[in-house]
Design a protein around this nucleic acid. Sequence first.
DNA 1: TGATGGATAACGATATATCGTAACATATCA
DNA 2: TGATATGTTACGATATATCGTTATCCATCA
Lengths: 165, 165
Amino acid sequence: MFNRHFPPFERHSRLFEKGDLKYVILNLLKDKPSHGYEIIRAMEDTFHGFYTPSAGSVYPTLQMLDDMGYVSSSERDGKKIYTITEEGKKFLKDQKDVIEKIKGQMKDWWGPRDHEEFHESIRELRNLGRLIHQKAHNMAPEKWKDIREAISRSCREIEDIMGKE
Amino acid sequence: MFNRHFPPFERHSRLFEKGDLKYVILNLLKDKPSHGYEIIRAMEDTFHGFYTPSAGSVYPTLQMLDDMGYVSSSERDGKKIYTITEEGKKFLKDQKDVIEKIKGQMKDWWGPRDHEEFHESIRELRNLGRLIHQKAHNMAPEKWKDIREAISRSCREIEDIMGKE
DNA sequence: TGATGGATAACGATATATCGTAACATATCA
DNA sequence: TGATATGTTACGATATATCGTTATCCATCA
């Protein structure tokens, strides 16, 4: 459902400050050698699905860390595993307070919150979107009119609640 | 917003019959040599964004067509362009009625319909989802409760309309 | 000091490819 | 003939990587 016809979630602001991503990645690799994709997934989990780092930054950052000697990579079955080096571990230790600051920011961004409730409601919305998406291609005009009106009304109502301060 | 925490649209049924995809792809290549990704996009456009073929089938099918000699590929800037061969054109011509049947099915799937209205309403839903997604991480509990209730009620209402026959 | 320009890294789009899963058609068996 | 098994391909997940865009920081200038 997310493609050029239904433009994706647009953030228009960055979650990570410039230069911070490499610390996060190194910190993850400290625990476990990983594929690029696994790093993306691990970060996604950290934010309970509400943020996903872009492959466009993760892969170049991994390459940069490799160039700097903080990470090494090996290829297996055509897939790359990245491993932190001793230099990388030393760098991490030296930058301990930067990492603590970043961790704090990540924690602040994701408040102490029961994300299951969020997931449930987003899932409800998603299921609805899915249903509409599945039926849209051959829906009767009158029914569609009713549905469109209900969608508009509902969206306005919910946005009003959210707008209230 | 579509990731493992918010499972993607699940079709659980195929749009194309087994073996039909290769005809669709060849037909597209007849008009224009393309990247795999361009073929995916062209098909997505055909269905106005309501269906997207899987890379998991498109790429192997292109490879198969290459193996069969109906398509040739050349690489430029690390990216592959697929071009229909004379054999492929002949095969297309020989299978003209199969292709007409498939075209008919595609047309039937996508009824004569003004998709702009669909897009608009899906967009509204999406914008709502986006707003929630952006605010979820630090929303006040009481407000969230109100929003959750509104979401559930709205979804039920719309699903009820859709359920009516 | 505020405005402007430039640099850079995170984000988003483009592009590739394979493996695992499931739908579904066909063959086989009772 | 209906039930079961098998094979195959579309779908979905995993995995990679680069280019174009944009947000944002920092430097420079007036």
